[in-house]
């Protein structure tokens, strides 16, 4: 089967400093990949580059998504091709209601596929269905985007947006950070409900904790801008036991 996402020899720098130093990664439909690693290893940079954050400079390598060259696409087109990032730090947008924000996003996706804008009643129904499916409070969607939301509410809101946009590849960047155990369960359950054999998920995390709920097929360890180990789900458990140190030491040798 063809790869959904294919990253080859990716080098990325920010303000002249090289952060990613040759990443190779291939993900197929239906798979869940976890990317783990200590702070500052480049995990969030990788997520940012995939979605097209212009702060990061790709100096070498390629990213293909569904056979299309991602690096030539604007962030909005990547999103409309089906890539979704659940932000580590979701942005507050005062004055833009969740309803208007989501309606704009949903309609832009439809326009990209050559479809007419969604009707007002269908849209409200879609919002309600997704909200109920994820067990999200109606208050959340009646407010301005993330404004005054707690850490947990922001992350739930990310998953709600993911449900609304129905992506082919979801990247969860440290979605577990700042979550209490109940919020973590809601978020993880939501991700599992949304995941099918036709889409893929990348889970970026420090800890095994989230992976108790979202079971990865493949686990990668990213360190100092390189993937130093790739294995099955047992790797995450090993890391929980022994930490990153021995792995890093091995890689250094």
């Amino acid at each position: 089967m063809e790869n959904l996402l294919e990253i080859k020899n990716l080098h990325v720098s920010v303000e002249g400093k090289e952060i990613l130093k040759g990443i190779d990664l291939a993900i197929k439909k239906g798979e869940i990949h976890a990317i783990m690693g200590p702070n500052g290893s480049g995990k969030s940079t990788l997520a940012s580059v995939i979605v097209g954050n212009s702060r990061f400079n790709v100096t070498q390598g390629s990213i293909f998504f569904n056979g299309k060259n991602l690096l030539e696409m604007k962030p909005e087109d990547r999103a409309r091709e089906g890539i979704f990032l659940s932000f580590q730090y979701p942005v507050e947008i005062p004055g833009v209601s969740m309803v208007n924000f989501m309606r704009a996003a949903v309609n832009e996706h439809r326009k990209y596929r050559g479809e007419d804008p969604i009707s007002a009643s269908d849209f409200l129904k879609l919002m309600r269905d997704k909200r109920e499916m994820l067990g999200i409070d109606s208050q959340l969607v009646n407010r301005s985007v993330n404004e005054g939301f707690s850490g947990g509410e922001k992350k739930k809101n990310e998953i709600f947006q993911m449900a609304m946009l129905n992506p082919k590849l979801s990247i969860l960047d440290e979605t577990d950070s700042g979550l209490d155990i109940d919020a973590l369960r809601i978020v993880a359950t939501g991700v599992n409900k949304l995941h099918t054999k036709d889409d893929a998920v990348i889970v970026i995390t420090h800890y095994q904790r989230l992976l108790d709920y979202i079971k990865p097929d493949v686990v990668h360890v990213l360190y100092n801008g390189k993937i130093i180990k790739t294995a099955g789900p047992e790797l995450a458990l090993e890391l929980e036991e022994n930490g990153y140190e021995s792995l890093i030491n091995n890689a250094m040798e």
Binding site: S54, K74, E76, A79, A105, E108
Partner: peptide
């Protein structure tokens, strides 16, 4: 950051600017 967040949801930059100005 807000601009990029909106783009990452599929809203084109110009449209995102518009929404932010209205907001």
């Amino acid at each position: 950051d807000a601009l990029f967040y909106m783009q990452a949801r599929g809203i084109p930059e110009e449209e995102a600017r518009m929404l932010l100005m209205v907001a």
